[in-house]
């Protein structure tokens, strides 16, 4: 078989695009480590921001705490409705009209830009309900943002469970909820957890929705629901945008990326574990 010029060129194109993406990720991570690494110390992790202007010295502890508060709150708000909706779609609705509509709505919700969710929660929580810029408003915004992610990933994890289990259980006359509880949910647990972790990583890095609902540059992040919190992504944005400290910005970015990638890698390994379970 002789190779034509087009063959050679297209092969080059495929390889270059594949490798370029690898290089980009490596470059991003190595550059962050190179620029931010030297400024990471136990003091940076465990201290509050100090110095004039504030943030040039000290650390980012309240921002880490605030981000954790925000994602935990988002999880608490969204997990139950998310799982119930997924169970409806996979077990109860199946191919019905209502399930079709709910699927479409959830799919569309997943596409809604996060700033729009921020806008909605700003009007509803911050202004109308009088919460002000607060942890509660931010948690709600992030919860709405990750709800469709949780639904879609859990639904798919449930649907991936062997259909024969449902058939066998059904023919014994037991109820759907019993089958779900005894067989389907335990069987899909790893996949569902993976989806949830992924959504938490997504929430931890989200900036736009908390920028308008929850974040402050200085706050104690005590966990009080009606007070503003600091958050890693917002802190990074301000450190850079207000020209406070480029070094601390790099270090904050590194901490944030580490946190998010840690959640992602955990999710990734859980979901490949789930795939092995499903193949058994």
């Amino acid at each position: 078989m002789k190779k034509t010029i087009t063959d050679q060129l297209s092969l080059g194109w495929f390889w270059v695009s594949g490798l370029l993406i690898l290089v980009i990720l490596l470059a991003i991570i190595l550059y962050l480590i190179w620029r931010g690494g030297p400024f990471i110390s136990s003091q940076f992790i465990l201290d509050s921001p100090h110095g004039v202007p504030l943030g040039t010295e000290g650390g980012i502890f309240p921002a880490i705490k605030g981000t954790l508060w925000l994602i935990v709150l988002a999880l608490v708000i969204s997990i139950v409705p998310g799982l119930l909706t997924a169970m409806y779609l996979s077990e109860y609705g199946r191919s019905g009209r209502l399930a079709e509509i709910i699927n479409l709505l959830v799919q569309s919700m997943a596409g809604v830009p996060s700033i729009i969710i921020g806008l909605f929660v700003y009007a509803l929580g911050v202004v109308t309900l009088g919460w002000g810029i607060s942890l509660l408003a931010g948690g709600l915004a992030l919860a709405i943002m990750i709800f469709p992610v949780i639904v879609i990933s859990s639904r798919d994890a449930l649907l991936a469970v062997d259909k024969n289990y449902r058939l066998v259980a059904n023919s014994l006359g037991v109820s759907k909820s019993y089958t779900l509880y005894r067989v389907i949910l335990p069987r899909a647990a790893a996949g569902i957890t993976a989806g949830v972790l992924l959504s938490l990583g997504y929430a931890a890095g989200a900036t736009a929705p908390i920028m308008v609902t929850a974040a402050a540059f200085v706050a104690s992040s005590s966990g009080a629901l009606l007070e503003p919190v600091m958050a890693l992504p917002y802190h990074l944005y301000i450190l850079f945008n207000e020209h406070i400290s480029l070094n601390h910005a790099y270090a904050t970015a590194l901490v944030l990326v580490t946190l998010v990638l840690f959640l992602n890698i955990l999710a990734l390994s859980l979901s490949s574990w789930q795939e092995r379970i499903n193949k058994q």
Partner: peptide
Amino acid sequence: NVSLLRRRVGMVYQIPVALPL
């Protein structure tokens, strides 16, 4: 309810299925 019917009528399928228990 179908539950009562299915309790009276057991069924075994072509592929041997062990529930993951």
